[in-house]
Design a protein around this nucleic acid. Structure first.
Lengths: 248, 248
DNA sequence: CCGGATTCTTGATCTGCGTCAAGGTCTCCA
DNA sequence: TGGAGACCTTGACGCAGATCAAGAATCCGG
C-alpha cells in the first residue's frame, strides 16, 4: 500500500487521535493550520525497526496502515512483546524524550507523526485531544492487564487460542460479532512473534497450533492462514473469564 | 490509622489527582465547592473487598493510605494480580459503569471517592485533571508493560528479586536512591499475594525467598521483614534490562 | 522451474515449577 | 502466657513447556 493510499484511509479513520480536524470541532482555524503543518507521514517496510528502545524520540504518532509491535528485551536476549499496534493506535509518550520500547514494523507500515514539541503545545491547549488520548490509554491499560492474566496464568494452549481469538475478533471485527459462520484470515505474525507475545517458545507455539488443528478447533491453510469453524469453541479453549473482552 | 489521620495525610499528598484545590489553581470558587461537596472518604479493613469485578461502580477514587490490589480471576480459580494500588493511585474508569477487576484492601485502607457523574463533569470542564490523569495512566501502562516482561520471560528467582526491588525502591524511595547502606522494610503482601502478582505458586515464592536468603541476597526478619545488604546485588538478580526502571 | 533461504513442524530429552503433603512458626487474643 | 489459627517452609514427585536437533513446507529471485 502506498503512502498516498494510506493517507486516504487516514482521512476516513474515525479513531485516530491525531486526525485533528475531525476530533476538534471547536478549535480556531489558525490552530488547525499549525497542527496540519506539523503533521507528516513516514512509511516503513515489513521487518524494519521504527525506533530502538532508548533512542531519542522527538515525535509522537499513530499507525495509519499496517502493524507494528512494541517489544522489550533482557540483556541475554529474552524478548517479550508488550504491545501490538494497529491502525489508529498511538505511539510515543508526551513528556518523555526517549523511546521505552523497540518499535518494529511487522508488515509494511505507514505512520502519521508530529514533532513532539508542537504536539505537546496542542495537547495543552485543546482539551479534546487529551481526553481522547486518556480514553485510548485506559483501553490500552485494560488490554495490558488482560494480557498479564494470560502471561501469568494461562496454559500454552489457552494462550494460543486467546491470541487467535483476539486477532480474529478485530481482523474480522465487522463480519463476525456472533455470526455463527466460519471465519478465516491471515495471521499477521510469524510463529516467533507469536511466541514473543505469548511468553512461549516458537516450538511450543507450533506444537499447540498443530494440536488445536488436530482437535478441530482451527484449520490451517498454508503457513499463515487460519480458519475458525466454530468461534465459540475457540473462545472456550481460550479459557476466558470475561467472555474474552476485547484485547487491543 | 484513623480516617481523620488519613484525611490529614491526604491534604499533604501532592500526587493525588483528586486533591482538586492543589491541582487546579485556576478554577472558579463555586466549581471548587461543587467538587469538595462531592468528595467523601471510605475506609476498609485489611482483607476486605472494595468491589468485585462486574459490580456496578458509580464512583471513582484514589488511595489515601494503605494498599489495595487489583486482581483478575479465571472461572477455575486461577488468579492474577494486575495492579498494586498505593497512596495517591487512582481507581475506577471514567466512562465505565462496572468494575473490571476485584479490588481488595491488603492492609487497612482509606480511600477518597467521588460519585462518578460529578467527577466526569469536572473532568470535562477542568483540563488539568484530565491531563494529570493521562500522565498517571501512562505511568501505569509503562508499569504494566514492565510487568508483562516479568511474567512472560523471567525465572521464578528473577521475579522474586524484581518484586522485592520494586517494593524496596518505593517503600524506601527517599532513603535509598543509590545509598549503599543496607535497606530494610516489611513486605506489605502475603506469600500468596506475591504469588498472585508474580504468576507463581505460594510454594515457589517461599522456596525462592529461602534461596535468595541462603545466597545472601536478602535477609529475612520474621515473616514479613526483609533486609537488603546490597541493593545492586539484588537488582542484578532481578535480571533487569533497563536498570529496573520504577514500577508503579 | 530450480535451488537456496526462511519459516515452520516434529521428535527426543531435560528441567523448572506446580502439585500434594507434612510439619513449623508467628501472631493475636483470651 | 499459652493455645488456636493463619501463614510460612520444606520435601518428594510429576508434568508442561524449554531446549536441542533434524527435517519439511513455503517463498522468492533467477
Amino acid at each position: 500500500m502506498s503512502v498516498q493510499d494510506a493517507k486516504l484511509i487516514h482521512q476516513q479513520c474515525a479513531d485516530c487521535p491525531i486526525r485533528h480536524r475531525a476530533v476538534c470541532a471547536r478549535c480556531e482555524a489558525d490552530e488547525l493550520d499549525r497542527l496540519e503543518q506539523a503533521k507528516y507521514y513516514r512509511s516503513f517496510e515489513a521487518g524494519q525497526t521504527v525506533v530502538w528502545s532508548g533512542d531519542r524520540m522527538d515525535w509522537v504518532g499513530s499507525v495509519v496502515s499496517g502493524i507494528a509491535t512494541l517489544t522489550q528485551t533482557l540483556e541475554d536476549g529474552r524478548r517479550q512483546m508488550v504491545g501490538l499496534l494497529l491502525p489508529s493506535d498511538f505511539v510515543g509518550r508526551p513528556g518523555r524524550a526517549t523511546a521505552a520500547y523497540d518499535v518494529t514494523a511487522t508488515t509494511d507500515l505507514v505512520m502519521c507523526c508530529f514533532r513532539k514539541r508542537p504536539f505537546e503545545d496542542i495537547l495543552a491547549s485543546t482539551p479534546h485531544i487529551a481526553q481522547r488520548l486518556l480514553e485510548m490509554t485506559l483501553d490500552e491499560l485494560d488490554a495490558a492487564r488482560e494480557w498479564m492474566l494470560l502471561l501469568g496464568r494461562k496454559t500454552a494452549r489457552e494462550k494460543i487460542a486467546s491470541l487467535i481469538a483476539i486477532i480474529a475478533r478485530r481482523d474480522a471485527s465487522l463480519k463476525l460479532r456472533r455470526a455463527a459462520a466460519a471465519v478465516s484470515f491471515d495471521l499477521p505474525l510469524t510463529r516467533e512473534a507469536m511466541a514473543d507475545y505469548l511468553g512461549l517458545t516458537l516450538e511450543t507455539v507450533s506444537r499447540q497450533m498443530s494440536a488445536l488443528k488436530r482437535d478441530g478447533v482451527i484449520e490451517l491453510v498454508g503457513k499463515r492462514g487460519v480458519l475458525i469453524p466454530d468461534f465459540d469453541r475457540l473462545v472456550e479453549e481460550a479459557g476466558d473469564d470475561s467472555d474474552g473482552g476485547f484485547l487491543v
